[in-house]
Simulated scan of single mutants.
Amino acid sequence: MLQSLLNLFFPKVCYACYQPLMAQEDAICIHCRNALPITNFHFDHNPAIKKVLYGRADIEQGTALFRFEKKGLVQQLIHELKYKGHQYIGEVLGDWLGGELKNLPEWQTIDVVIPVPMHKKKLRKRGYNQVTKFGQRIALALDAAYREDLLLKVVHTKSQVKKTRSERAQNINDLYALERPQELSGKHILIVDDLITTGATLEGCINILKQAENVKISIATMAIA
Rank of each mutant, 00 (worst) to 15 (best):
Asp174Ala: 14
Gln136Asp: 05
Gly127Val: 09
Ile208Phe: 05
Gln160Ala: 13
Tyr146Ala: 03
Val131Glu: 01
Ile206Asn: 08
Leu151Ser: 04
Phe68Gly: 06
Ala212Lys: 12
Val154Arg: 12
Pro20Lys: 04
Leu21Asp: 04
His45Gln: 15
Thr63Ala: 12
Val215Leu: 09
Ser4Ala: 11
Lys163Asp: 08
Ala225Cys: 01
Cys14Gln: 01
Gly204Leu: 08
Leu2His: 00
Leu73Tyr: 07
Pro37Phe: 10
Glu100Asn: 01
Leu202Gln: 07
Pro11Asp: 00
Lys158Met: 05
Pro11Arg: 01
Cys17Gln: 01
Asp95Glu: 13
Ala225Asn: 00
Ile224Gly: 03
Tyr83Asn: 04
Ile30Met: 13
Gln61Ala: 07
Gly90Asn: 02
His188Phe: 02
Ala225Phe: 01
Leu209Asp: 13
Asp193Gly: 11
Phe41Asn: 04
Phe134Asn: 02
Leu21Arg: 03
Ile217Met: 07
Asn7Gln: 09
Glu60Leu: 11
Gln108Ala: 13
Glu106Asp: 11
Val52Gly: 00
Lys70Met: 06
Glu148Leu: 00
Tyr83Thr: 02
Ser218Arg: 06
Leu140Ile: 02
Gln108Met: 14
His156Tyr: 08
Thr132His: 15
Glu213Ala: 15
Ile217Ser: 05
Phe43Arg: 03
Asn103Gln: 09
Lys122His: 14
Leu140Met: 09
Gln160Leu: 14
Leu140Trp: 04
Phe134Tyr: 13
Ala169Tyr: 12
Lys50Gln: 15
Cys17Ile: 03
Thr221Leu: 03
Leu123Arg: 11
Gly186Ile: 00
Met118Tyr: 07
Asp174Thr: 14
Thr132Leu: 05
Ala27Asn: 03
Ala64Arg: 05
Tyr88Phe: 06
Val112Tyr: 06
Ala169Gly: 09
Gly204Gln: 13
Pro20Gln: 02
Tyr54Val: 05
Gly98Phe: 02
Arg67Thr: 13
Lys210Cys: 06
Leu104Gly: 04
Ile172Asn: 12
Thr201Tyr: 01
Phe66Arg: 10
Glu179Gly: 00
Ala212His: 08
Leu184Val: 11
Lys102Cys: 13
Phe68Ala: 10
Asn171Phe: 12
Gly186Pro: 08
Leu150Cys: 10
Lys133Pro: 00
Leu184Gln: 04
Glu148Thr: 00
Val116Gly: 06
His79Arg: 05
Leu8Asp: 00
Glu106Ser: 15
Arg56Cys: 03
Lys122Ser: 14
Gly55Leu: 07
Ile28Phe: 06
Asp174Phe: 02
Arg56Met: 09
Glu69Ala: 06
Lys216Ile: 01
Pro117Lys: 11
Lys50Leu: 06
Ala35Thr: 13
Gln108Tyr: 10
Arg67Cys: 06
Glu167Arg: 06
Asp174Arg: 14
Asn171Glu: 08
Phe66Ala: 10
Thr201Ile: 00
Tyr54Phe: 12
Gln108Gly: 07
Lys162Glu: 14
Ala212Thr: 09
Gly94Cys: 05
Trp96Leu: 10
Arg56Phe: 09
Asn129Cys: 08
Pro20Arg: 03
Leu140His: 10
Gln24Trp: 01
Thr157Pro: 10
Glu80Ile: 00
Ile217Leu: 02
Phe41Lys: 07
Ile49Asn: 11
Leu190Ile: 01
Phe10Asp: 00
His31Gly: 00
Ser185Pro: 02
Lys12Pro: 00
Gln211His: 13
Arg67His: 12
Thr198Trp: 15
Pro47Asp: 14
Lys84His: 15
